[in-house]
Amino acid sequence: MQPGDKVVVTSSVVVYNHPQHRGEAFDMKCSEGDVVNVLTEWKGRPISPTLPVLVAFGRYKAHFRGEEIQFSA
């Protein structure tokens, strides 16, 4: 995955900090967004983060595992 790719959330991921649903459970499944960044290094050193893919859904951004999202058509 590269920054700028269009993706869709394929598995059930519940968040509690979505701006339109603050404080309540919101399932991100079937939401479409754009990849902002894929985290592979920090301060020039390689890292292996648990949630490496940063995806933007309008103003809201969230981190995902690679298997939770797939490319959108």
Rank of each mutant, 00 (worst) to 15 (best):
G44C: 09
F26Y: 15
E32I: 13
V9R: 04
G44A: 10
I47Q: 06
K6D: 05
K61P: 02
G4M: 01
G33C: 14
C30R: 14
M1R: 08
T40C: 11
Y16H: 06
K29L: 10
I69Y: 09
N17D: 15
S48D: 04
A56F: 02
D5E: 08
L39I: 14
H63V: 04
S11D: 13
V35A: 11
G58M: 07
G58T: 06
P46M: 08
R65D: 08
Q2M: 09
S72I: 02
S11W: 00
K61Y: 12
V55L: 02
H21Y: 06
P52E: 12
G44V: 07
H21F: 04
T50G: 08
F71W: 05
K43W: 10
K43V: 08
P46K: 08
E68T: 03
H21D: 01
T50M: 13
I47V: 15
V8G: 02
W42Q: 13
P3S: 03
K61C: 13
G44W: 12
L51M: 08
P19H: 03
K6W: 08
A56V: 01
V8E: 06
P49N: 06
P19N: 05
N37F: 08
E24F: 04
E67D: 15
P3W: 02
S31W: 15
S31R: 14
N17F: 05
Q2G: 00
V53S: 00
H21T: 05
P52Q: 07
H21C: 01
F57Y: 10
A62V: 06
C30H: 14
G4N: 00
V14E: 00
V55T: 01
V15Q: 00
V14H: 03
V35W: 11
V38Q: 01
Q2F: 00
D27P: 11
S48P: 04
R65H: 14
S72L: 14
S72K: 13
V38K: 07
K61T: 15
R65S: 09
R59L: 05
V35G: 11
H18M: 00
P49R: 12
V8C: 03
P3N: 01
I47H: 05
P19W: 03
P46A: 11
M1F: 07
